[in-house]
Design a protein around this nucleic acid. Structure first.
Lengths: 218, 218
DNA sequence: GGCAGGAGGATTGTCCGACAACCCTACAGA
DNA sequence: TCTGTAGGGTTGTCGGACAATCCTCCTGCC
């Protein structure tokens, strides 16, 4: 049977979805900084599509939480305040520790794969790749629970983080050390030492939070 | 200071949001059963709005996961398969137990309030109200973690459940017993007995799942 | 000088009409 | 039985239009 991969893959996404996808990528890559207003007509001409199409794309991005809409004033790139970041971190804590507690052995290989990719990314040194791989690792942690739905929630959560990271680009600050920590975490989980893993994860997340951009509490 | 409540409240939502809201309500109330296709023109004439408006509303509902879009074939009311329900239940488990573990005393009153509303709803006997209150209670459980973001994720998760419940309306099947269980859970949490609470919650969720509509595994 | 109030431009929210692309079904033909 | 085609219904995208709203600037008055 022929599957639509490789040479046979064609893009069957609607124009709207392509626009949304492009914007999403630009958001994650930090090409659009938080607070930037997104004008409908500007985007329409930039993409060479109609305003309706742009509007639909924006609406999905708003629903995803990447953009913020102010009625009659348009949408802006979501700005994650320090308070929200803290809130987000708390949510992550629940999700990731919960997933570790409910970890299913079958999902372990995905975590190992994520770690390998992470190591590879750090090897290349490209900060964006490191970010992406870092996020992907934590995504895999959430995936341990073996629930698609939960993984999707984790993705939503981490996308916000990715936004914040892309903006306050404190790039690969001691990526080496970060990597060691993650490997340690991975090993504990793989060894089945849930208690130690949970402790390490808690510590890891907490420190992550402490290292967050130290703006004055909004 | 005058706040926009009571007699002073006016509806400042956009037409699109009102349409989305109306559809959302109808979905939760089970007036639209899973699998039903939603035709754009039909909705437009029914609501007395333009097709563009309907399209935008549908798009947000799709992003929320309440509707499913098949390219060039329109959107249908999301149907949650038994497999997905199981998946969902696993996600709930992680979220709710995680929230209980990370419970903050400040959020306890909200849980108590939810329980009170639940009791009241069971008192009236209206099955829809009972459903809503039941969901609200579990929502409050997630809220224990004190993270807005997490609560919103919980809402997304539970909305699916609400869909499934609205469809397979096994209404207030022994609502009394259910209520007792929830009260028990509440008391354990309130007493600070996290371990027992977690155990009870696990049991509760598991049984919930077992009681789910027993269609053949899709 | 500072502030209420209005003019003007920019932008969003909504509508309408149009048309190509697409999907599904039914039917005819090999 | 399978292939190909015709037809109608629906979605996806476009362009243009206009009222409502917001923002900025300017005016005039105290």
């Amino acid at each position: 049977m022929l599957t639509a991969t490789g040479d046979f893959a064609i893009d069957r996404r609607s124009t709207t979805d392509q626009v949304a996808g492009s914007l999403r990528r630009q958001l994650f890559d930090g090409h659009l900084t938080p607070g930037t207003p997104l004008r409908e007509v500007d985007l329409a001409t930039a993409f060479g599509v109609s305003r309706s199409t742009v509007r639909e794309a924006l609406r999905t991005l708003v629903a995803e939480g990447l953009l913020t809409r102010a009625p009659n004033r348009g949408v802006v790139v979501r700005v994650v305040s320090p308070v929200e970041l803290e809130d987000l971190q708390r949510a992550r804590h629940v999700l990731e520790t919960g997933a570790v507690s409910a970890a299913r052995p079958a999902q372990l290989s995905a975590l190992s794969d994520a770690l390998a990719s992470y190591e590879a990314a750090v090897g290349t040194g490209a900060p964006e790749a490191v970010h992406a791989a870092h996020i992907a690792f934590h995504q895999a942690v959430v995936g341990l629970a073996g629930s698609d739905r939960l993984s999707r929630l984790g993705a939503a959560l981490l996308s916000d983080l990715r936004l914040a990271l892309a903006a306050a680009d404190r790039a690969a600050d001691d990526a080496a050390h970060q990597l060691v920590e993650h490997r340690h975490l991975h090993d504990l989980i793989a060894a089945g030492d849930t208690v130690a893993a949970l402790e390490e994860l808690s510590r890891h997340l907490h420190q992550d939070h402490a290292a967050a951009p130290g703006m004055p509490p909004g």
